[in-house]
Design a protein around this nucleic acid. Structure first.
Lengths: 203, 203, 203, 203
DNA sequence: AATGAATGAGGATTCATTCAT
DNA sequence: CATGAATGAATCCTCATTCAT
């Protein structure tokens, strides 16, 4: 009559711990957050945390995986096959909106992604960069598609342009999520980033 | 009746310590860097460091001040009074070049600014943000000037556009500095950011 | 679902640490004693000490509390209601004996009370003084009782006399405890302090 | 043309340092006082202190020597040769007054003697005890004289009684000096200690 | 499985002392 | 002689991790 926890139960516990950890890490940062803080928030013993995660780093890595997967979904849902500038513009808006949605739902993820991940560890910084690079990579595909469909500038260095565009997108997400913007407050950012991406600053 | 170290000597020591600290912090991050690491790199006793800086945070703050002042200089040297798009474009290039120059000279500063500063402390994150905001603020003035001189889009939200532009600029600086790019490697970034800013992605 | 150490066990550990700390502090004084010394004496890790006491000061404070409570008991058990000089004399002997008993049982407490507490901290010096003052206060009550019952001098300044008497008592306790006196060695002190208190030095 | 400081000048410097040290030690205690505090108070370099005293302990030892010598003088000036109880009483008053005078002139010495000396070091505690013992020793002579002249109790254990009397005297000095008593405030203490010593507490 | 008791590596900081100038 | 720059021993305390119950 040994009692083995069902896989579902284990998964639920892991999730609870992850959720608590996201809150705690977002509040205090990786270094200042203790395993005990996470356990206390859940009302469990801190030793228990180690039954579900190898160590503190492991929890953080899982958070980053979550981030990576959520952000991947955003781009992967929207293949680079638009046929005109207006279509591409709509696609851009969709992607921005979905990305914003992720972080608005859990602003703590924004704090972690944009602040608390850095300075932990070279490996973790790399992981965060990889997320951005994934985004940039996809963006490059969109740009290449636009060029091949002739609605984007042909002499563009898509790799570089993709990074720049991604940087703007991330800046937008960061602002909107960290300042807990309402839809109305988001609107001008949404409009401005699209305009800038499409037509630049000039008249 | 001797022995009061000359102000120059004191300043030099402080500078040496700061330089070593920049290297160490860039390599290992704030938390993983010990005062002893800094002292050892200089071949001095770690107690000596405390004669020049109150504590570890104090050293880090000084690095941030340095960063802030260097970056301030970049924008403050170039007042927002260009009269045409080509002129503004040249100004943009100048600013980008000067900014890049700062970080190419000391790529460690880039690591500190873009990675290691975050996650230390709320106060320090704020300081870094303030640097970016300073930049965005100035950028907004450039944009307003361009609008008033009628060579930039009039319906632009300059505050937002400024932040987006700053984000691109920082992304560029980050890449160029952290990957230790040669002039030749920098060129396409330089070209692309200007194009994107001026005319966007579209044809 | 186990592992919450029973309150008894916790209390025992606290007590063990306190006992070891009393030994160590008595031997080397507060400043020269390290938490590591205490832990080592118990054969436990020094981190463990911090599970039971907030810090070194906290341990010391607890020792002082112990001292205060033990010494309080001595006087509080013996209300100031004797009716004649012989009765009072007997009471004095009882009190002296009980006080001596405390410190003979743990001569280290004498070292702490009479030596090692001073010079730690203004707060701690005050705490030690308060113990003596408590004693003097009670002594004043005894004296007032003696005056009202007309077996002690009526023109006495009881507050001052109480302090002087307390000083003699403490001197006795100090000697007896610190020199680890046998009953036989104590006897002349016992006799002399009583005589002096009752009839002074003169014939 | 070597310049050797005159012995007088050296002595004066030593004295200045000693005076400053007395102030500082009395204020903050031995451990909390830094050599730098002493030097700063004198407006000299802290390295200079080491030209006059071997180390911090050495300065403290000198303070204790000073104390010892001042207190020795008090008793040594007044030989144990009184012939009657009233004469002895007057002698007691003289001694108490002289002792009080020392500490009223420099209340810092009282703080050092009664508080800050303990807990520094076993050796220093011993030195302080030796001062008290010197006093007790002399007191024993007074008592023996009184017994031989038949104005004091013959069955007295003079060594013990001397210690008890000394304890009262020190308690008085401590109170009077540390509370910066005026002559008028001292009077009742003076009166009470004499009464207690002569005739005890009883009617 | 869950727990929390125990552990000790790790690091910042202070300050007495030395000694080159 | 005077100085203060340099030094590093010394010690407190935190907290991630392990593991007996």
């Amino acid at each position: 009559m040994v009692n083995i926890a069902s896989p579902e139960k284990i998964a639920r516990r892991r999730q609870d711990i992850l959720d608590a950890a996201i809150d705690i890490f977002a509040e205090k940062g990786f270094h200042a957050s203790g395993i005990a803080d996470i356990a206390t928030r859940l009302g469990i013993g801190h030793g228990t945390v180690y039954r579900y995660y190898k160590n503190k780093r492991d929890i953080f890595n899982e958070i980053l995986s979550l981030l990576l997967s959520e952000m991947s979904t955003v781009v992967q849902q929207d293949p680079p096959n638009t046929n005109s500038l207006p279509e591409y513009q709509q696609q851009l808006e969709r992607i921005a909106d979905r990305l914003i949605a992720i972080f608005r739902e859990r602003p703590q993820l924004a704090r972690i992604a944009f602040y608390e991940s850095y300075g932990v560890d070279a490996e973790i910084s790399d992981a965060v960069n990889r997320i951005q690079e994934l985004f940039a990579e996809f963006t490059a595909y969109y740009l290449q598609n636009g060029i091949s469909k002739a609605f984007l500038r042909s002499e563009m260095d898509t790799a570089i342009a993709a990074r720049l565009v991604t940087a703007m997108l991330m800046e937008t997400v960061k602002h909107v999520a960290l300042n807990d913007f309402s839809d109305k407050q988001i609107e001008p950012w949404r409009r401005e980033i699209i305009r800038l991406m499409i037509g630049g600053l000039s008249r």
